[in-house]
Design a binder for these strands. Structure first.
Lengths: 232, 232
DNA sequence: TAGATTGTTAATCGATTAACAATC
DNA sequence: TAGATTGTTAATCGATTAACAATC
């Protein structure tokens, strides 16, 4: 791994013509995590552009996204987006390459665990559709909630989680349970094969190898804002 | 600024005894932003500890928080938390210093804009209370929603935003509107004096100087997870 | 004392950005 | 061609971490 990093993108080391055995798509150049976090932002920013516009410069995209134009160019250099000198990036192509790089060419089945206020709000989040994320299941422990329909989606018992996750090939779990239930739910998701978890519960989940967990925590965010408030 | 950074924490440069003119609290050592983002995590982790435990080592805290123990010690060195060699950190003192550093010794008035599903979910988020964030107002444009009570909180007309924000000394605005309304709402909040905004709308807000904006976007998070899903 | 753990240094790693040749 | 903008380098900046003396 370290050794591979020492050679440029697309290159292989001095191993004869081994390059030929690794077609472009098979060599997964790992994209720096800071860049990965910005790619969705660029994708979103492209939607803000007037539909009449065919190309976009790194300067314009950077202004909208709030990042330096050199940053934009460097970020885009990690994916197969190629601009034209003096012109900029073709918007349709850029959008396509961003989607490809982020793995958005296929759709992803999502389960929401917790049918409370938050789970309900998440289930009809407008940003879901259009990016290929399909909410395929919603769970709750509360028997009085099970059987209800939320936004056209049946609330199913938590006890069926493993079976349903596997039957519906769910690859992303969104944890919207109370804090005390979060770790248990996460463990069960992982045991059922889920490798990506978005945790909205105000709890820190144990690190699980091979599992990508992202945390969204309102009170953490507010506390960070509180710090900057006192900084004048 | 650059020049000041070149001297150690708490030191001033070779300007005679000028240090005496800057008592500890007045010299705001800016805490690195990566550290600021982790302080709330430590604070949360301390609550996970058994109440019988009086001290906590950087190793234990790091394990729970998912960060290296050297990281923990370095982070805590930026605030007035002092551990005892061979023992660890006094939990009560650490909690107090974390709260002090984050500006949580006073309470903060919060307004939620948008009384939809998300706004409602946010208003009764359990993590709010206990950290001194008080939801003092909730707004919506929809006349049919105005006048309703959400969780004991009156939904007020968006047109009263400026007046109410100023009357109730609101310092943090939470934007939970549809995407197309977000920038306008943010502009109005800023004009009314708000300097901290938490944006849940899937929109990128213009940079505003002196205003700290944090963005929480479900679809961005899902797209990042989608990237790591394809990385095997 | 012996064991544990801090506080800090210095090395390393990763991210950002200014600058500019290449070139449309 | 002249102007615009990319792609990339190299410098810089900021964050992480191993290591260890200090010391409870």
């Amino acid at each position: 791994m370290r050794a591979l990093r020492t050679c440029r993108k697309g290159e292989t080391e001095n191993w004869g013509d081994s390059r030929r055995h690794y077609p472009r798509l098979a060599v997964k150049n790992p994209i720096p995590s800071a860049t990965v976090s910005r790619l969705p932002v660029y994708l979103r920013c492209l939607s803000d552009l007037p539909t009449t516009q065919m190309t976009c410069s790194s300067d314009q995209l950077g202004t909208i996204a709030g990042v330096n134009s050199a940053q934009v160019r460097k970020d885009l250099s990690y994916i197969d987006a190629h601009g034209v000198r003096g012109v900029g990036y073709d918007i349709d192509e850029l959008r396509r390459e961003l989607r490809r790089a982020l793995g958005l060419m296929k759709s992803h089945a999502v389960a929401i665990i917790g049918a409370g206020n938050l789970g309900t709000a998440l289930s009809n989040y407008p940003g879901f559709a259009g990016w290929g994320f399909e909410v395929k299941a919603m769970f709750d422990v509360d028997p009085s909630r099970v059987g209800e329909e939320v936004d056209g989606l049946l609330v199913e018992p938590l006890s069926d989680l493993e079976r349903i996750v596997s039957e519906r090939s769910i690859s992303i779990g969104i944890v919207a349970t109370p804090s005390h239930a979060a770790q248990d739910v996460a463990d069960r998701l992982v045991r059922a094969g889920v490798r990506s978890i978005l945790n909205f519960a105000p709890a820190i989940l144990r690190r699980m190898s091979g599992v990508e967990v992202r945390r969204v925590d309102l009170s953490t965010e507010l506390q960070i804002l509180a710090y900057y408030l006192q900084q004048d």
